[in-house]
């Protein structure tokens, strides 16, 4: 067994097992903690896949941000952590059935797709592009600084390195609409700006929703009133 395969199984098997434990545990804090380890393991897989910046972002935002928030919310809302909320047997059966069908469907789709049935990249690519992929592999193999600056500059529409050939795995006739004016500098400025505005809206919205309501109106409304 090669080192990378060992490492993959060393990370992947705990992730899979922990994901299953998250599903079947009824202890909500423990579910959050197992989610923490799942996320850290996924970040390790990103390191294995040469995406160091994304891995560090995952550690920073998911682990240091979202999960802390999640546990905060659990502590604020759960007076009794052992308070189990069981679902009905019908729901249980339905959920298992749905997930089985979903898994089966995706597996069949994956099995028939050109990307996976060709057992990796080399066989799916045509001869002309396989040479290019080897070049890309060489570029991948050395963790270069350019990769990070490429991500950064492409967010500001400054990148000209985006490959223009169609992606492997897509059908032959699939083409981008070429009637648009040709652009030399393509990037992700629009999603970047959209996300910034989106985050601002979320910031205001979340602060508005979660603020403690001390005004009289909400105090007078008892739970029995709202139930009707």
């Amino acid at each position: 067994m090669e080192l990378d395969e060992t490492l993959f199984y060393l990370i992947a098997i705990p992730i899979a097992v922990l994901a299953l434990i998250i599903v079947f545990t009824t202890h909500i804090v423990r579910a959050a903690i197992w989610l923490l380890f799942t996320l850290i393991g996924t970040a390790f897989l990103y390191f294995l896949l040469d995406a160091a910046f994304v891995a560090a972002s995952q550690l920073m935002i998911y682990v240091g941000g979202i999960l802390v928030l999640l546990i905060f919310a659990i502590m604020l809302t759960n007076q009794n952590p052992l308070n189990r909320l069981p679902i009905s047997k019908l729901d249980r059966g339905f959920s298992i059935l749905f997930v089985l069908f979903l898994g089966l469907g995706i597996s069949v789709a994956l099995y028939n797709s050109p990307v996976i049935s060709g057992n990796g990249q080399n066989k799916t690519n045509t001869d002309s592009s396989s040479k290019k992929s080897e070049d890309q592999d060489e570029k991948n193999s050395s963790l270069s600084n350019d990769q990070i600056s490429e991500i950064g500059t492409s967010f500001f529409d400054l990148n000209s390195k985006i490959p223009s050939q169609p992606m492997p795995g897509f059908p032959e006739g699939f083409k981008v609409n070429r009637k648009l004016p040709p652009r030399t500098n393509q990037g992700y400025l629009l999603p970047f700006e959209l996300i910034s505005i989106h985050l601002l809206v979320i910031l205001i919205g979340a602060a508005y929703l979660a603020r403690a309501k001390y005004n009289k109106n909400t105090e007078n409304v008892s739970p029995s009133d709202t139930m009707e």
């Binding site: 990796g120 592009s129 992929s133 890309q136 991948n140 991500i151 169609p166 992606m167 492997p168």
Partner: peptide, 11 residues
């Protein structure tokens, strides 16, 4: 990682 033309987009 595995599809060369998707290298930047994926990340």
């Amino acid at each position: 990682y595995f599809i060369p033309s998707f290298r930047l987009e994926g990340q």
